[in-house]
């Protein structure tokens, strides 16, 4: 059988733009695993692909918008969440997913993230965290762990990193989870759960960056980094997000927040109908 025919027989072939394969990501990059888990979640939920929108920002993972076989946006740097908010408010039927990186969502797009979480806009954010700006050559970013080596911190980073799950939980997200790319089944379940929830859901995915971050920090090949994830990750469901800091000794993974709250879109629609009704009543009088 021809290779191109085999590609079409892949169980997730319907979700992938086959003509754009192979993708640009490095060998062993976690972005492909994230995309795979996302497709698996879509497949399990049997969502109508016409009702799913993927928005991504700038960065390695930003390319994801070009590889998914659904309507997708590849937006400007840091502005994935504002675009997604607009899409969701304009057409509430759509399931809007933001797939972006840590630099895009938390450095230049940090304010958009916290305010979207505060408003509880009904979008799902999946963040690939590789601890640095991979696409531009490995500069340090808001998630670079203290003391790690990047091209712009040649003597080790002296800045304290963001704890993304804590930030999301404190800003008001209704669903917050963190997994590494090794726990693909759990990650798929988490994405599935996030897609089913109403409100701002956030899933952080710790991803290996074998060519840049892991190489500079002498963590070894992608397989060795995955083994390292296996060694140091601890599942603690319901753990206080404040305590779930990432260090070189441990990565706490699991589901941290799972609450119910009315979403921005619903409150907006309720208010619009209420105001319209009262206006019509006044007009009738």
């Amino acid at each position: 059988m021809k290779e191109s025919d085999l590609m079409l027989r892949h169980p997730l072939a319907a979700y992938l733009r086959q003509e754009r394969m192979p993708h640009i990501w490095c060998e062993g990059c976690g972005n492909g695993v994230l995309l795979n888990s996302f497709f698996e979640a879509l497949d399990k939920l049997k969502l109508d692909l016409d009702k799913v929108v993927v928005v991504s920002g700038i960065g390695c993972i930003g390319r994801a918008a070009g590889y998914v076989n659904v309507d997708s946006f590849h937006t400007t740097h840091g502005r994935a969440i504002p675009f997604a908010t607009g899409v969701k408010l304009a057409n509430p039927e759509l399931e809007v997913v933001v797939i972006s990186g840590d630099g895009d969502l938390f450095a230049i797009g940090g304010n958009h993230f916290i305010h979207a979480a505060r408003r509880n806009v009904d979008i799902k954010v999946i963040c690939a965290n590789n601890f640095n700006y991979g696409m531009t050559g490995g500069q340090y970013g808001p998630t670079t762990p203290l003391g790690s080596w990047t091209t712009t911190t040649p003597y080790g980073s002296i800045e304290h990193p963001f704890n993304l799950v804590h930030l999301a939980a404190a800003s008001g997200a209704v669903y917050v989870a963190r997994w590494t790319t090794l726990q693909v089944r759990k990650l798929t379940d988490s994405i599935k759960k996030a897609l089913g929830k109403e409100g701002f859901s956030f899933v952080e995915v710790i991803s290996p960056c074998p060519e840049i971050y892991d190489r500079y920090n002498k963590l070894g090949t992608a397989v060795e980094v995955m083994k390292w994830f296996k060694l140091i990750s601890q599942t603690q469901h319901g753990c206080t997000p404040e305590n779930a800091e990432i260090s070189k000794r441990q990565i706490i993974i699991g589901e941290f927040v799972d609450i119910k709250k009315p979403s921005y879109g619903r409150l907006l629609r309720e208010m619009t109908t209420r105001v319209k009704e009262s206006f019509q009543e006044k007009k009738a009088k």
Binding site: H10, W25, C29, G32, N36
Partner: peptide, 11 residues
């Protein structure tokens, strides 16, 4: 293997 392959190259 299908789930963890970043390249969608095995199933």
């Amino acid at each position: 293997c299908t789930a963890i392959c970043p390249e969608f190259a095995i199933f």
